[in-house]
Amino acid sequence: MRAQTWKNSGIDLKPGTKITGKWYKNQYLIRGKLGKGAIGTVYLCESGGKLAALKISDKGTSMTVEVNVLKSLGQVQGTRLGPYLLDVDDWVSPNGTTYSFYVMEYLKGESLSLFVKNNGNVWIGVFLLQLLEDLEQLHQSGWVFGDLKLDNLIVLSSPTRIRWVDVGGTTQTGRAIKEYTEFYDRGYWGLGTRKAEPSYDLFSLVMVFLHLYYPQRFERTTQSEKLLFKKIDQVKQLQPYRNPLKKAIAGKYRTSSEMKNDVLQIVYQSQNKSRLKKKGNQKISNIPFYIEMGGISIVAIGFYILSLIF
């Protein structure tokens, strides 16, 4: 999506700017810009010697809605689905404008494309499963991610785990998707509604992996489904998963666990195949081992007989 030209949406904080909350008086020192989205700008900041991410915007209502989502996600038991929310407040700038901001944990990671480039395609299956797992959790707690895209994903290291960073599009199940990006949106491709339901996220999930291998993206045609199927088939790295990917595009999965099971099946099968190959190799290399074992046994039996005689 191109940057929207909403009026006075520009806020530019220089490194070194001190931000003090209007309500709770917490202080943050801006260290640098991390990114800019449709709603606000995210900065790296420091507070009490710790680093954190601070999102600030003049669109107070949209920010409040995001904070509500982050809070609800924080209440989901078990794994952490969104970034951890640290503070919510307003900031009155020196020229008198009031901005809303919130502070969340700073997740330091690598982009998905860079990681896969450096670490190989083995990780495709892993990330696909990790994302499906997270989506399953999210869906079960009554939410749909909505704006799932390459830009909203980062890979954390040790242990390697894919995480989503921007929850601005997260919508309650059954409502209309709040925020989306055309390339990832099934409505744009004419392949479904913008109703928040698990299958909406699964469609976007496939588009994430297509975008990964088509960095320039591609244009839509009248026969979208055919086109997307073709695009999936043309990527060698996605070959093993092409069936579940196509099923997700066609909206055949009602839940993420259905898709996860299909992907797991594929992962197991390919593991078995490679294990069988290894076993074959082992047989050949085992022959000297058997000879040796045989030799040792003969010697042992000899000693045993000798011990019987004496």
């Binding site: 209502t61 409040t64 919510v88």
Partner: peptide
């Protein structure tokens, strides 16, 4: 107005 209310309550109103 909504802006003059603390963030906590503002969240509830926005809901």
């Amino acid at each position: 107005s909504i802006e003059n209310i603390d963030p906590e309550k503002r969240g509830e109103i926005m809901e």
